[in-house]
Design a protein around this nucleic acid. Structure first.
Length: 405
RNA sequence: GGGUCGGUGGCAGAGUGGUCAAAUGCACCUGACUGUAAAUCAGGCGGCGAAAGCCUACGGGAGUUCAAAUCUCUCCCGGCCCA
């Protein structure tokens, strides 16, 4: 029997940290958690891309906090729902994926989530796939489920309103998305669903269905989104998304490119640093004498540490200091064997340091290509014997060591 | 089913016979600056080519024309109105 922790302070913190909203209300959920009853909760992840991103880490992190208190956590892979495509992000049309693609992605998802969430040990998180029950749903059952909602409820959502206003299509199956996601709650008979605040509607659909079908009160806990002080979201479209399958170096660098305003929010949502420590960092950021860069480096370090381990985080930090702050070649610079006479343009393309010949040319013209810190401006430059051992640098962070054959 | 409007680069969105490899914004790349791969500023951003230039591209196909993203036909997809 799993031991349930009912420490009030811990529960308060659990319901406070990063939480935007609790339905029906926070007090009711607190009471439930205080009762010592082991609850079953979940969050779903649609494997549409080959990697989870830092936004997903927010909910995974919250799941892990419930796990630490002894509750039953389900990491749900939305292998069925991802076929429909969540209309929440408005760019609804998603390309069809094969079953194999989905499962391949999903396999990595668990690995990526494992920095936050334990899938083994005493109270392991369970991985489930929602095709398990959704595949079996009959048309008749679907119609019955859909009778719990009205068209008015569906089109109320602002992204649908926007599309109506913009005269953009709304496909019928998009109304079914909240339904199928909601049905997950019924099928798994959960007590609580965790999700980003943008998932509120879908999660509440599950609350409605769980009430209607199982006559059970399902709690919904929504989390703040990762955004800066001005409410600007971090995400793929903003170009500052961090993917959990990125190399430690890339992850570290990406975080360093975030705006300063997001530091505290990210610490709260995506790391396991204690609240008191976050408060200290918040204070430090207020003091003009301190350089916000240092707090951001702390954040970057923590994020890489959780996802890739402490050693990797250390390495990534050193790599950043060396290559970005000092502009030096990394210690483990990739070596390339080149024949005398090969065109530098060709090398850039072959090494994927440029996307095409045109791109390579542009980079040289704009002074972005250096050999041992000397700008190359000869488009026709060919590799010569004296280039042996030289460091080829393209842009700020792409290095190769040339070995002449 | 009828009418009508529309489908443009990674995305959003101009253009409506030659000056269009296609405005602008986002994303991206390079440089300057900076604590930063932030912000800002400057430049760039289909492919091949040293260049001139050539090739491919505006939903698919066919056509008109010296010339088509732009006109015509047809097919596919969508919005709106009517039924």
């Amino acid at each position: 029997m799993q031991k349930i922790i009912t420490d009030e302070k811990k529960i308060d913190q659990l319901l406070e940290r990063g939480v935007e909203n609790v339905f029906p209300d926070k007090e009711a959920l607190k009471k439930k958690l205080m009762s010592g009853e082991r609850i079953r909760l979940y969050c779903g992840y649609d494997p549409t891309a080959n990697s989870l991103h830092i936004g997903n880490a927010i909910t995974i992190n919250k799941l892990s906090q419930f796990q630490e208190l002894g509750h039953e956590v389900i990491f749900l892979v939305g292998d069925f729902t991802c076929m429909i495509g969540d209309p929440t992000d408005k760019l609804a049309t998603r390309k069809k994926m094969t079953r194999e693609d989905v499962l391949e992605n999903a396999k990595d998802y668990q690995l990526q989530a494992s920095g936050y969430l334990a899938f083994d040990g005493e109270n392991p998180a369970k991985v489930m796939y929602n095709s398990e029950w959704n595949d079996k749903l009959t048309f008749k059952e679907l119609i019955e489920l859909s009778s719990n909602f009205t068209v008015q409820q569906m089109i109320q959502r602002d992204m649908f309103q926007n599309r109506l206003k913009e005269e953009k299509p709304i496909h019928l199956h998009e109304f079914l998305y909240p339904l199928t996601q909601g049905y997950d709650s019924v099928a798994m008979d959960v007590d609580l669903e965790v999700g980003g605040n943008d998932q509120m509607f879908n999660m509440l659909a599950g609350r409605t269905l769980q009430k209607a079908v199982n006559d059970k009160e399902k709690f919904v806990l929504t989390l703040k989104l990762l955004a800066d002080d001005n409410g600007k979201k971090m995400g793929k479209s903003e170009g500052n998304a961090v993917f959990l399958n990125q190399s430690p170096e890339d992850m570290y660098g990406k975080v360093m490119s975030w705006e300063d305003g997001v530091i505290v929010r990210a610490l709260e949502l995506c790391t396991k640093i204690s609240i008191s420590e976050i408060e200290e960092i918040t204070e430090a950021l207020k003091d003009d004498k301190n350089n916000p860069r240092d707090q951001k480096m702390r954040l970057a370090f923590e994020l890489v540490k959780i996802n890739c381990g402490e050693k990797e985080a250390q390495r990534a930090q050193e790599h950043f200091v060396r290559t970005i702050q000092k502009g030096e070649a990394p210690e483990d610079v990739i070596e390339i064997q080149l024949a005398v006479g090969i065109k530098l343009l060709q090398v850039l393309v072959d090494e994927k340091m440029a996307e095409s010949g045109g791109d390579a040319k542009r980079k040289i013209k704009q002074g972005g290509v250096k050999l041992d810190d000397i700008v190359v401006n000869n488009l026709q430059k060919e590799i010569a014997a004296e280039d042996n051992g030289r460091i080829l640098k393209v842009g700020k962070r792409d290095f190769r060591k040339i070995l002449v054959k």
